[in-house]
């Protein structure tokens, strides 16, 4: 974990679901992406069976390195037999998921509400 600097995430607990929202509008910088990945990995490690909802509501730009971080997060959740949902993805960013076919890998919901209801 980085030793200094504030969190790049807003984290809320709803019973057994952890909702994570990005603070940055642009998820492009390598160091920021690393920090985001490590913070979310920490949340996954802290849970026996993680149920994680990641909201992209404030995100305008993201790079393939950020997609890579989301894939690593998905892999870590899978190892723990947890559940990961993505929500509130801007249409331009959703296009990036479609081009890369990652819309097949992730469970993506229009809203946090519908994502929340989809947890089993």
């Amino acid at each position: 974990m980085p030793s200094s600097g504030s969190s790049r995430l807003r984290v809320k607990k709803h019973n057994d679901v952890t909702e994570v929202e990005f603070i940055d509008r642009n998820i492009l910088d390598e160091a920021n992406i690393h920090q985001i990945r490590e913070e979310i990995m920490g949340l996954i490690e802290a849970s026996a069976s993680p149920r994680l909802l990641v909201s992209f509501a404030s995100v305008d730009h993201m790079s393939s390195a950020a997609l890579g971080a989301m894939i690593s997060i998905n892999n870590a959740v899978k190892i723990k037999k947890g559940q990961l949902r993505l929500a509130n993805i801007d249409p331009q960013i959703y296009e990036v998921f479609k081009i890369t076919k990652l819309d097949k890998l992730f469970q993506i919901h229009d809203s946090t509400d519908s994502a929340m209801k989809s947890f089993q």
Binding site: S64, L67, N74, T100, K101
Partner: peptide, 16 residues
């Protein structure tokens, strides 16, 4: 974009 490569975290820059 191949199914077997979807969970590999890198290698998408050129595609985009």
């Amino acid at each position: 974009t191949l199914d077997e490569n979807l969970d590999i975290p890198n290698g998408r820059g050129l595609l985009l």
